[in-house]
Design a protein around this nucleic acid. Structure first.
Lengths: 365, 365
DNA sequence: TTTAGCACTCGTGCGCTTTAAGTGCTAACA
DNA sequence: TGTTAGCACTTAAAGCGCACGAGTGCTAAA
């Protein structure tokens, strides 16, 4: 009982490591006897049992029921991914397939991503997914400002894809109905009818100078428009190889699987998870870490793809928590990096490279 | 035993009708007692039993096991769809939703189709699907003619999407290696690098006149190119609401469902089924009629969408054989017709309306 | 501190019985 | 001659009990 809170001694790490590895391979709960025999651990099953009981008390393992072995808890997986797992080296066969894809002459980023998804599915045996940049440019067709009271108003956006977005805006200055109507006219004149990607700095400068009396107001509105557009424009999720999930007993409960499917088809949750995470490293989201109910038994690994500082997509893998993290991470990372490198030379959509830095950046806050 | 082969007397029709209706509603096998009580049939259960036994002998019904009621056979469903089923009138609520969609300002055909799929799923409670016209124009980048013998050669096409298609061509005239090389150069000069949709009559006229000495050969090659392009270019299948299938006990066998999912993800089978069927009526494919193994327990209903004589997509529904055919057909038909009508005014992709009749038509054979 | 041994727990699988639904057949009936 | 009531028969599904086995926790010995 000398394990300090939050830190594990070497032996515990070794045992936890072995348990996670075994569980990922075999699927069922793993018991002390199995570890004593099959893994190269030179301890008796009884000692292992003691260690396992402590690991459970510390929250790294759990027991499906009293007479079963242990399975890693979410915390166990997390520790495994952060500290235990050894880096997987892609086999030459895997590298060959990955490189074949990259050598192919697929020009469009979204086609490339689609092909990449298929490959990732077949390499990892898990469901894979990509976020593609939106195929059609979103155009704002109407902007409305609805007066609520002197401090607040409602911003309503209607887009060419018939999506309506509304935002409450707390005004930084006192507003009147007339002010809002004037602003509305100007905003519509300047911002509707052009692709949102084209709402560049010059356009905004022009607009704010024209409306200098309302400067603070305009900047806060623009910011809200930017946010709203971001939500509309978060790209399109493409999922491949859902059938692969069904090979894992984790998904044999039809009802749960149905809910997962529904979530994937709604797309929203996954897009949210992806968009709210950091773009500069491979993200590993284990079970409930996603805060999405139906993902509790699943893990999601993904990496965003950048081009010239701008995130233009993502590629990821969805599978049971008992996922071969090491291999999946290596695959996703390799592919995402290759695509990012290649994307640097590709013109996505209609925007041309030099424009890149002219896009609105959402204010930090 | 007076039922003539192939024809059913009124009473049998009435009973078959009632059985199919009840089965579609309830799901389980339906028995004689149930029919005698709940349907407005003024016969005793014993009489119904006799009729059912005959209907089974004639192949319209089958019995899952000796002590169960009857369920319709494929033939039973077919007869029901062709002759028994009453036409479903869309409710005003359904019509409202359908019309809302059509009134929306979605401009692009593929976006419209995607929205339509979602709506069909939610209206019918089955999985729905659309075939969208290909998003990216296919460009042929290389044409190769490989000499095999004096009567045959191999046509190899490489497209911008890195797809390679080969066709054996039986030549209508004796060919030599030199001839093929000359032809190859000309074909490449005229047909590569432009979207296949732009390979219009003028282009072909020009080409054939330039190569008049090989006229028959050229026309047969063009035809093969057209076929091959059709295969490349058969559009993109989009499936929505797969999770809905899982509410039907027909899909509770995980292994079978997995195979179905795999088939849907491969897309090929469904695209084949759709492309080889007639374009001018709603198609109903019941169970094994599709010749696709995993579809044996499922039915597919779809209708193609035309624009100016050209098929530009399709919309359909996939569900258990025990499907509410009447309602699904009404929904699909209504929506497909609306979209076809609207598509007449929409410019899909880059092609402009007046060009329409200038596209190559594949020779009749 | 480690290990061997043992009693205990609990999920799983198997075979048994019961139940209920539905049939086919026979005989009576209109 | 067609229809119906009644009954014996069939069978899948559901419920039950029991033995099995995997794995644990604990105790005591090394």
């Amino acid at each position: 009982m000398n394990a300090e809170f939050g830190e594990l001694d070497e032996r515990k790490k070794k045992i936890l490591h072995a348990i996670v590895n075994a569980h990922i391979r075999v699927g069922g709960p793993v018991g002390s006897k199995y570890l004593a025999q099959h893994q190269h651990i030179t301890l008796s099953s009884a000692t292992i049992r003691n260690e396992m009981a402590e690991l459970e008390a510390l929250g790294y393992l759990e027991q499906p029921h009293a007479s079963a072995g242990r399975i890693p808890s979410e915390r166990g997986y997390r520790f495994y991914v952060n500290s235990l797992m050894e880096k997987y080296r892609l086999t030459s066969a895997e590298l060959r397939q990955l490189n074949n894809l990259m050598k192919s002459k697929i020009e469009e980023l979204d086609k490339l991503l689609e092909a990449a998804t298929k490959l990732v599915s077949s390499l990892t045996n898990y469901t894979s997914l990509t976020v593609k940049p939106p195929q059609h440019e979103v155009v704002i067709t109407h902007i409305r400002l609805l007066y609520l009271d002197t401090q607040t108003f409602l911003l309503v956006l209607v887009t060419s894809t018939d999506i309506v977005k509304t935002k409450y805006v707390r005004s930084p200055m006192v507003v009147t109905d007339e002010m809002l109507r004037t602003l509305e006219i100007e905003l519509n004149a300047y911002l509707t009818g052009i692709p949102v990607e084209r709402i560049t700095l010059p356009v905004i400068m022009e607009l704010t100078s024209r409306l200098s009396e309302y400067e603070q107001l305009v900047s806060s509105i623009i910011r809200y428009i930017y946010d709203a557009v971001g939500e509309i424009d978060s790209g399109d999720l493409h999922v491949e190889g859902i059938n692969l999930l069904l090979q894992y007993p984790e998904y044999s409960d039809v009802e749960r699987f149905k809910e997962l499917l529904k979530m994937l088809e709604r797309k929203e949750d996954i897009l949210n998870i992806i968009s709210e995470r950091d773009a500069d490293s491979t993200q590993v989201i284990i079970g409930g870490e996603s805060r999405v109910e139906v993902m509790h038994n699943s893990s999601l690994i993904f990496r965003k793809i950048r081009r010239g500082g701008r995130v233009v997509g993502a590629i990821g893998v969805l599978g049971p928590c008992r996922m071969d993290y090491s291999r999946v991470i290596a695959t996703v990372e390799h592919l995402a990096d290759c695509i990012s490198k290649r994307a640097a030379g590709i013109i996505p959509g209609l925007s041309t490279a030099p424009d890149d830095e002219a896009y609105i950046k959402p204010p930090e806050d």
